[in-house]
Design a protein around this nucleic acid. Structure first.
Lengths: 209, 209
DNA sequence: GTGAGATTTGACCATTTAGTCAAGTTTTCT
DNA sequence: AGAAAACTTGACTAAATGGTCAAATCTCAC
């Protein structure tokens, strides 16, 4: 009755509030334990309501998971979508790296949720991976290839360059515990240093001399 | 009676065989679902024995998990430990990148297990992270800093450089599903291209000109 | 203010899961 | 061969978990 039905019809005030609370709680629990390891009891408690009430809004564990995931994916794509062909390669790459590092800093749970889903096989987002994600990577790879052809960037496989940026930036969200353990006591500047290091290595490595 | 006791006493032939089968099955299941999401039933089945028999060898889920993790951690540290101060920076970094990419190619489950544990908070390996791991990173960071001081490498924060190499190389194991989705149909050369791209960017970015 | 519809939850159920146990079977050592 | 030790498992338990349901409470347009 709800879920699908509700998402079409306009939402009541209470629905808006509760859905938001649930999605937020679900993000934190799913990202911490993965789909299988997460429990509805824990999510319900974090959202401040009973489990049956949670199930009133999302009638299946899976539908809740998918809802959280969908919210995350859009967010995830946005910065890459912003990369413009007519910009300066150095500026565009720099901006992209910064945007991704900012995401790791400001919304690590989203990054971890995505990582967890991929780690566990990505079964819930196969369509996304082979559809929108592949499409945008193809598009941006063409832009990078053009920069290279125009001599504005040194030769590099565009797709693997994109992987490099994903990997290095997301590392600071996904592997936060490890990063903190290795760095001097809870280095507050770690995101700034990360961004600087990544930008320096990537740009010095790829800008023409 | 077993577990701790057995690990001291010398192992029988059957113990050797079964422990190995269990550890391998456990690696595959834990790495796929995380600690909470993994079930002993599934591990036992994959190892080809009954659950009580599995529990004969590892009396707790946790002790099995820790055992698998320990095997993995040693493997994980080895390549970094091999980085020598008196080598050529280009060679040493190159070798390290290759070794890590080889690990991602040949033992992705180990990489994923580690990733999964860190993602889930790293509670089972806090000691490892703050002990041996931090120690070796400190040691190798000093080597890198010396290279920089000697003008053999351009200035970069050594620790973040190490993070970059970890992130980029492990990406090909941990995010394999995503990598495959984005690359042309199951690109068989992806590990070679990855290694080339990472080496090129890192070395061009950091070697003095 | 009131009633139709929206929201909430206690009690419950079936299944899954980590872990136990006693009774068996197999291996090993002499 | 024969006994001790090692190994194996069917049957079980208690707790956790996803999900149901009917009865109660709350909200809001009229």
């Amino acid at each position: 009755m709800l879920d699908e039905a509700i998402s079409k019809r306009k939402r009541t005030r209470i629905q808006t509030v509760n859905r938001e609370a649930i999605l937020q709680a679900a993000l934190s629990v799913f990202s911490a334990y993965g789909y299988r390891g997460a429990t509805l009891d824990e999510i319900a408690e974090k959202a401040g309501m009973s489990k049956p009430n949670l199930l009133y809004y999302f009638p299946r564990k899976k539908s809740l998971y998918v809802a959280v995931l969908e919210e995350t994916l859009a967010q995830w794509l946005a910065p890459l979508a912003a990369m413009k062909a007519d910009g300066d390669p150095a500026d565009e790459l720099s901006r992209y790296i910064d945007a991704k590092i900012a995401m790791s800093r400001d919304n690590p749970a989203a990054s971890r949720l995505f990582a967890s889903e991929i780690l566990q096989g990505g079964g819930a987002i196969t369509e996304f991976l082979h559809g929108p994600l592949k499409a945008i990577v193809d598009e941006k790879s063409r832009i990078i290839a053009d920069w290279i052809a125009a001599g504005r960037l040194r030769p590099v496989d565009p797709r693997h360059l994109i992987f490099m940026i994903w990997a290095t930036t997301q590392h600071y969200a996904d592997f936060d515990v490890q990063v903190r353990a290795v760095l001097a006591s809870d280095d507050e500047g770690r995101f700034k240093h990360a961004s600087e290091t990544i930008r320096r290595v990537v740009l010095e490595g790829l800008l023409p001399r």
